[in-house]
């Protein structure tokens, strides 16, 4: 083994890859979220479809997309490698184990949270990405693929909305520990700025996951089958009665 492979297969080296890919994926979340906010524009999805056409056809975006694939791939691969190493470091467990008294639940369950996010990711990619890229969607009045229509119909199914909200809660908890942890692994922990990183990470976790979760909830509760916003309170109630029946 030369020094490069030796570095990145060591316990610290693997963690460094985890943190770099994790923080890169955080930047992806921000971009994805900002784009998705166009779903709230009450224009029958025309702006959102322009944006999704751009994201699906622009050569720069298509190139960065491969970076994203690698980011997810390495993050998941290193998580598996580290988990196997960590499990094999203690084959005989304790009879009594009070970890909750010395650490946060999220930090001890990153693997479970990550696995929930992975399941969500597969469903999410199949439903939206796969159909947009390889399927055939009806065009909107601008002749763009009407991905908005697919979003509206998906988010009018209760189980789909429930899966999304559960996955976003997992993402929130994952980021709650992961954001700060990423900086710590890179050695960026200093008494001057660590409180800032920690608190920014908490705010990031809550805002990102809540914003993503608000989208399926918005469509399920506050829009009609066409995706148009229902403005009056009685109409929302009537819509919900129909939805639950």
């Amino acid at each position: 083994m030369n020094w490069v492979t030796k570095t990145f297969t060591s316990s610290i080296g693997r963690k460094i890859i985890m943190s770099l890919t994790g923080l890169f994926l955080c930047t992806f979340l921000v971009v994805h979220l900002i784009g998705n906010f166009q779903l709230f524009k009450n224009d029958d999805g025309l702006a959102f479809n322009v944006y999704s056409h751009f994201m699906g056809h622009n050569p720069v975006i298509r190139t960065i997309e491969w970076g994203l694939v690698l980011g997810f791939g390495f993050h998941i691969y290193e998580a598996l490698m580290l988990t196997m190493r960590n499990k094999s470091a203690r084959s005989h467990g304790y009879d009594q184990w009070e970890a909750k008294k010395n650490s946060e639940w999220t930090s001890r369950n990153m693997g479970i949270l990550g696995s929930i996010i992975l399941v969500f990711l597969i469903v999410h990619l199949y439903n939206f990405f796969w159909r947009a890229r390889f399927g055939t969607l009806d065009p909107d009045i601008n002749k763009n693929d009407d991905l908005y229509r697919l979003v509206v119909s998906s988010f009018h199914q209760w189980w789909y909305v429930a899966l999304y909200v559960a996955a976003q809660a997992s993402l929130g908890y994952h980021l709650w520990h992961g954001f700060r942890s990423g900086f710590q692994t890179l050695g960026l922990n200093h008494r001057k700025y660590m409180p800032l990183i920690t608190n920014f990470g908490y705010a990031f976790a809550v805002l990102v996951s809540a914003s993503f979760a608000s989208m399926p909830l918005y469509f399920y509760f506050f829009t009609n089958d066409e995706g148009a916003i229902i403005t009056s309170a009685p109409a929302v109630l009537q819509h919900l009665l129909v939805a639950f029946n």
């Binding site: 316990s11 963690k15 470091a89 970890a99 010395n102 650490s103 001890r108 700060r180 922990n189 008494r191």
Partner: peptide, 25 residues
Amino acid sequence: GFGACSNIGSCAAECPVGISLENIA
């Protein structure tokens, strides 16, 4: 054969002399 660090902080919380996580950074 020790495991890797998950930045959980149990170690520092249980350390009898209070070695901080800043050292791991």
